[in-house]
Simulated assay, not measured.
Amino acid sequence: MIVCVCKRVSDRDIARHASAGMDFDDIQFELGIATQCGRCEDCARDVVERHRTAAAHHAHPQPALPLPSYRAIPIMLAAA
């Protein structure tokens, strides 16, 4: 759907930039959203927040369990 009618920017355009890690100010500068009439700002901010949160969740998966440390184990050889 078109979020910014003045600049003809869709929610997909905004989502793509937000998923790349850009914040609202960066996206506003890049796409020109909310720079003319300003009516789209709330909706655009919602789209940015939704997609930045999703991107952050996918970018930081749960940490892997630590691998066990392997230490040299002395081996006692039987006397021949």
Rank of each mutant, 00 (worst) to 15 (best):
P61N: 11
A78F: 13
R12M: 08
V48Q: 04
D26I: 07
I2F: 02
G38T: 05
G21R: 08
P68W: 05
P66I: 12
P66V: 04
L65P: 08
S69C: 03
H60M: 05
E30N: 07
F24Y: 14
D13W: 06
I75Y: 13
A54V: 14
A15G: 02
L67H: 13
L77A: 14
S69I: 04
A72N: 02
I14V: 09
G38R: 05
Q62V: 13
R8T: 11
H60Y: 11
E41H: 08
A34H: 01
F29C: 14
A55H: 03
A54Y: 15
V48F: 13
C43F: 08
A44R: 00
L67F: 12
V47T: 05
L77E: 15
V5Y: 03
I33G: 10
F29K: 15
G32E: 13
M22Q: 08
E41P: 07
I73H: 14
I2S: 09
C6D: 09
G21E: 10
V48L: 12
I2A: 00
A18G: 08
D13T: 05
G32Y: 07
P66M: 09
M22T: 06
D26E: 06
V9P: 09
S10I: 02
F29E: 10
M76A: 14
S10Y: 03
E49R: 11
D11T: 04
R50A: 06
H58G: 08
K7M: 07
A59E: 04
D46Q: 15
M22E: 03
I75E: 13
L67V: 04
P68C: 07
A54F: 14
A79V: 15
R52L: 10
G21V: 01
D23H: 01
P66Q: 04
D13L: 01
G21K: 02
R71N: 12
A59P: 06
K7I: 04
A15M: 05
A44Y: 00
D13E: 10
A54E: 02
P63E: 10
D42R: 14
R45E: 03
I73C: 10
A72V: 11
A78Q: 11
P61I: 11
D46H: 14
L65A: 01
I75F: 09
E30V: 10
